[in-house]
């Protein structure tokens, strides 16, 4: 990653324009050619410096729902449980964390009722109780990572 890549990563965390030639608009602002911006974006995505480029949707505003949930998984059973949890398409992210509650995942569903269904499914497949941590309030300020 060079300085220009860093400029691109920093610039594109803000609002990308909705217009006929949005890459051209951003490229001009950064003092580069449209095709170079597109080529570098392709490479940043291929190299996994960026995990995604595009609209970021808010599931709740679409009638869907989100929750954060956790399991306390016995170490000997960890891989099996991880596979069982990850197999559900409603599991968007899943992290191992260092704690008695050692598996933390985000559930995202198209409908509000979908969350309870997914939790029941996970409990049935893993035999473990799910700790559900639905958000009660959000204090949102999106982090801008300095690249």
């Amino acid at each position: 990653m060079d300085d220009l890549d860093r400029k691109i990563v920093n610039a594109l965390q803000g609002g990308f324009p909705v217009c006929e030639r949005p890459y051209l608009e951003v490229a001009s602002r950064l003092g580069m050619a449209e095709e170079e911006l597109i080529a570098r974006l392709e490479k940043l995505l291929a190299d996994r410096v960026l995990t995604r480029f595009g609209p970021l949707y808010n599931a709740e505003r679409m009638g869907g729902a989100f929750t954060l949930a956790a399991l306390s998984v016995p170490e000997a059973d960890y891989d099996r449980v991880a596979q069982a949890v990850n197999a559900l398409p409603q599991v968007a992210h899943n992290y191992r964390r260092e704690h008695t509650l050692n598996m933390w995942f985000v559930l995202a569903t198209d409908t509000r009722e979908g969350i309870a269904d997914a939790i029941r499914e996970i409990e049935a497949r893993t035999g473990l109780p799910v700790f559900n941590f639905p958000k009660e309030e959000e204090f949102f300020l999106e982090l801008r990572f300095a690249a």
Partner: peptide, 10 residues
């Protein structure tokens, strides 16, 4: 519904 259009860095 769309929070923003942009890049998600790893």
């Amino acid at each position: 519904v769309v929070r923003r259009i942009g890049a998600v860095p790893n």
